[in-house]
Design a protein around this nucleic acid. Structure first.
Lengths: 250, 250
DNA sequence: TTAATAGTGTCTTTCAGACAATATTAT
DNA sequence: ATAATATTGTCTGAAAGACACTATTAA
């Protein structure tokens, strides 16, 4: 047909070496107040035995679906209902330098996932070899995955500022202190409790009150905190800016 | 070799349909105070005769290089020196829905380019069929390029807020009024001249004075404005926020 | 009882935005 | 001369950050 003919004529045949497209997922969660990333241990070459981001080849599906599928496979969680549907998933960026995979030209579309504390992947059964690692204890990674992880962390830190994404790390109902712990874990610095509390409540649509109060206070005392759920805002106005980092990356 | 063997074993052969990887470029510039995007007219099927974003297949090169090459080819500009080196180019995101190209599975890595006013592509000689179109006069586009363009415009509008990217749209030396015209064109609304002026000068590293003054004032009178060049800041602190859009996308 | 936390109040500083004023230049 | 523009000044309100205070609860 003419469409195919045109297609065949429209590019330099010698330049069209076979290309593979994969997705890699930077899945982040918070455990014990620390930010963790989901890693797998590679079985085969290259980088056999190295840690890597979960990922795989794109099949007959959208890129988003491929990322969700890979995440489900590695965590052993079932899509359709349950925890996996509350995972926030967004495209990060693509990596396609020639030589980033020695086997062939591979363009990887990286995704960023934010999840509430998930069960340990080992418990999932067949999905072994995947585990949550504190982001500050991640050593070397296979391929260019260290770069992808760094980009993902940058994005995550930035998005906490101007989106309500921190709520993706906590349960349906949460306290302001839990939300503050998310910011502390992702940004790596403590936030002033009083100012944070007032700020969160003052941003329209960030959180809404459930009217309920937690049945139990913290382990070390204090009043029973009120419970909130995520609001309907998609952007935070005004934003919740990070404590002034060294002003302006120059 | 074993690496290849592992590779062949590591995926479902039936699922690995051939994939093509392309780059598409959303190239933006400002002409006559209006934001324009570079479009080409497609020669062959599908979408013959339709307008589309410039783009093409990735060759043996990085994705960034592919985007720059496509931009050079379509504008007729030479890389290596000159205007093309002052173009800001950044990856936008990737688009890979099955069926977005009826011929085969095509994953496109979209790029966003900001350029100072460039010569008309037609003048370039061999690179015909490319032209600058005001973004508010772009009709339907081939494939999913309308979505890509919309995403690119969103990104551009957002980046003006917290990066000094507006300087990529003007020459080496510019006046505050020229910079203000960039914001007005991209955001689609006028900004208060006095407040904008003070704001730009107050953000550290946004612009630096050349010490010079323009040789000529505006066409309708006024003092000769001072000249500035881009500063060394990569982020604007504090940011230059858009006039309050409808608060928070809910 | 002690220590820690939740939630609120207050004050200072910074900044955005409205508005005004003055000097300068093309027409 | 007129009108438009560049630049600076002033004022108000919003908001961030520092700090203090009270009430509440686990141990």
């Amino acid at each position: 047909m003419s469409g195919e003919q045109e297609f065949l004529d429209s590019y330099d045949p010698g330049a069209f070496a076979p290309v593979a497209v994969t997705v890699d997922v930077v899945a982040l969660t918070i455990r014990d107040g620390r930010l963790h990333v989901l890693l797998v241990e590679r079985g085969g070459h290259p980088f056999a035995g190295w840690r890597a981001l979960p990922g795989g080849f794109v099949q007959e599906e959208t890129l988003d679906a491929a990322a969700l599928r890979e995440l489900a496979e590695e965590t052993g969680l079932r899509p359709g209902q349950g925890v996996l549907d509350r995972v926030h998933l967004e495209q990060l960026r693509s990596y396609g330098d020639p030589g980033r995979d020695r086997r062939m030209r591979v363009v990887s579309v990286a995704y960023l996932a934010f999840a509430p504390s998930l069960p340990d992947p080992r418990a999932g059964g067949d999905a072994s070899g995947a585990f949550w690692v504190p982001v500050d204890e991640v050593g070397e990674l296979a391929f260019d995955h260290a770069v992808i992880l760094a980009d993902g962390l940058d994005r995550a830190r930035a998005k906490l500022e101007y989106t309500p994404l921190a709520t993706a790390f906590v349960g349906d109902e949460f306290t302001i202190a839990e939300l503050r712990a998310v910011y502390a874990a992702v940004w790596g610095e403590e936030l002033h409790a009083g100012n944070f509390h007032r700020k969160v409540l003052s941003v329209p649509g960030f959180v809404e009150s459930t009217g309920e109060t937690a049945t139990r206070a913290g382990e070390r005392g204090g009043p029973k905190p009120r419970l909130y759920r995520a609001g309907d805002a998609r952007l935070l106005h005004p934003a919740l800016l990070r404590p002034t980092r060294e002003d302006g990356v120059r």
